[in-house]
Amino acid sequence: MATTLSHLPKNRPDLRQHRTPGRKNPGKQAATLVALVAGALFAGLPVLWMLSSSFKTNGEMFANPPRLVTEGFNLGAYTEILTDPVKVRFFVNSYVIAFAVTGLTLLVGILAGFAFSRFDFPLKKTLNVVIVSVQAVPPITLLIPYFGLMVALKLYNTYPGLILTYMVFTIPYAIIMLTGYFNTLPRELDEAVKVDGAGPWTALWRILVPIAVPGLVSVGIYTFMIAWNEFLFALTLTRTEDMRTVPIGIQLLMGQHSYEWNQMMAMSILGCLPVLVLFLFFQRYFIGGMTAGAVKV
């Protein structure tokens, strides 16, 4: 097996490396830079405001005129969150759930995407329509029957309950993206294993999946974010404090009478850090990643 596969590329060549740098045109360069800075202000200022608010005291939050830079750099909100075992538990729960959802979604999505990409079978179109459109049922109407189902399956207030629930939402997305991704990979690749008499299973795991790593990363990051940020089902399907996730922790700070503004902001800054780290870590893959997947969907 190894010998027959050795001629295949281990890593996808990075097209960017083959590019020759364009001629530098100072006017154009400046225009691009200006446009990007404008975009960065649009995207970044609200986040900067959030960041600065997380260092304010609750009283300073609504100072008039609004202040971007805080007077006393106050870490109170962060220490209060990080020293509260209940709140730390929210983060742990979110991690466990988001990682499990991501791993399982990729696994199931790879299998299904492979089937849609490499086989023709009856009901293919119907299944496609179903997979796309079930996403459109307003979750709020599904809530009660779904909740009843989870209780009946004894999955209420458990990790697996939330994990399976999020998979229902992430798998259609993963299938759509991964089907397209596999579609762009040449069939000759799968044929190579035939020489050894191996079947599609081997072709999938030995050849397609290793090549598809970038696509998997991009789908994985998005899946992670869906699972990390979901609120409605996380709230309904959990009952005890030790099962709650970060978005619920944030909403718990929005009380009946008042908001803990600085803690809310600090918690969401802390909440976005793992996703940001993942994004930075996988950035190279991510940029190249969705390419093939999406192009042919």
Partner: peptide, 24 residues
């Protein structure tokens, strides 16, 4: 492509789901 080992392969996936449900 015909292959001798194309027994319902994705049982692995199913097994994982079953496992998850069992943990539940």
């Amino acid at each position: 492509v015909s292959s001798r080992r194309r027994v319902l392969l994705p049982t692995a996936g199913l097994a994982v789901l079953a496992l998850v449900a069992a943990c539940g």
